Computed example of a mutant assay.
Amino acid sequence: MNNKKNSFRTPILWCLLFFSLYGLNDGNAQLNQNQLKFKNPIGNGADPWVIKHNGYYYVCQSNGDINSKGISVSKSNKLSQLGKPVTVWNTPAAGWNSSQVWAPELHYFNKKWYIYYAAGKAGPPYIHQRSGVLESVTDDPQGEYVDKGILNTGVDAGNETGMIWAIDVNVGHIAGKLYAVWSGWEQNATTDKTSQHLYIAEMSNPWTISSARVKISSPDQPWETGGPLDLNEGPQFLMRNDQVFIIYSTRESWTPEYRLAQLKLKDPSKSPLDAANWEKRGPVFQGTAKVLGTGHASFTQSPDGKEWWVFYHTKKSSTPGWARDLRLQKFTWRTDGNPDFGIPIPAGVSLPVPSGE
């Protein structure tokens, strides 16, 4: 009788031991996951671009300061931690794009990677900036790229490039068609103290702008003016639930007044090439006494797809200049479908890591 009792108890004891070891550890793992934190800034630099692909986050940046001559791509399975940058392209020794590489962006179409960037033959003054595109040789975003040439951002037959000054090209699909949006001048000038506007055009493929440009925004609101130079730049498509937004930067990137604003496509069933189909509001994200010059953002989702995050830069001091760092912040959506970026959180504050990380 006692032997039967013991044989009955033994499996129960093993089950209790199993759940105490593995079940409890799993609970602790979940608890630790919920307690994971990160702090801003997560790196140095400006104009951060991030894209999520097959479980990894790829960040594309120019190598160095405003006078950069190369482009790098980093890879990480965590949004809150940057990977090691790998240089994927250096400027040629001469030509329109031999210097001043600004704000590169990495995009994926038809099993190829494309990098959109601005560059110039010299500067300062920064009057030579034009935009071009690189295409990957393979499916590896950190691999080799070939130069597909300059983009048609406005024709100027009197200029050696044949194009009008343009930076910050961003691309996206709207109703099955590919569009480019960028910051440009109305016409080429001999001074970089020239106002910048936002333009949009249709593309026939990832390296060819096929329609005339259409101006969809100028710095014409009180919160876009009042500094040393009125500008609109850094436009980024942000799309959700069939709604199309362009989040852009306004005021001056070298001052604490840099901020984000928004264009919304009023009727997505109608052409985005109709300037009247865009409505403006702002600022939608701006600095505080502790966070200066919030701007030039990109957007992605958490590893599990449950959260939206804005990746942006801020100034390191109130002194005019381009010393900046990189920051992440979760944002939400309003009931009317508009993004709600909230207020920028100061550096050094512990924040929960993105969901699923």
Rank of each mutant, 00 (worst) to 15 (best):
M1L: 07
N3P: 00
K4R: 09
L24C: 09
D26S: 12
N32I: 13
Q35H: 08
N40Y: 10
P41Y: 01
P41K: 10
D47Y: 02
D47C: 04
Y56P: 00
N63E: 15
D65A: 15
I66V: 14
I71W: 04
K75L: 03
S76A: 09
K78H: 14
S80C: 13
T91W: 02
A94V: 05
G95C: 08
S99D: 14
V101H: 08
Y108M: 10
N110Q: 14
A119K: 06
A119N: 09
K121N: 12
P125E: 13
Q129C: 03
R130I: 14
S131T: 13
G132P: 01
E135Q: 15
D139R: 04
D140S: 04
E144H: 08
Y145M: 03
D147A: 02
D147F: 05
K148P: 00
D156Y: 00
A157D: 11
M163A: 05
W165M: 11
V181H: 02
W185V: 06
N188E: 13
D192S: 12
D192W: 14
Y199A: 09
I200P: 06
M203E: 08
M203S: 11
P206K: 01
T208L: 06
I209Y: 05
R213K: 15
S218H: 00
Q221I: 04
D230H: 03
E233T: 13
E233R: 08
G234Q: 07
G234C: 12
F237H: 13
L238F: 14
R240V: 06
Q243F: 01
E252P: 00
E257A: 15
Y258Q: 08
K264M: 11
L265G: 04
L265Q: 08
L273D: 07
L273Y: 05
L273S: 08
N277V: 04
E279P: 03
E279W: 03
K280A: 06
R281S: 15
G282R: 10
G282E: 05
F285E: 11
Q286E: 14
A289M: 01
F299V: 11
T300D: 07
G305Q: 10
K306C: 03
W308I: 04
W309Q: 14
V310Y: 00
Y312Q: 06
T314N: 15
P320A: 07
W322S: 13
D325I: 01
R327Y: 02
R334G: 15
P339D: 12
P344S: 13
S355K: 05
S355I: 11
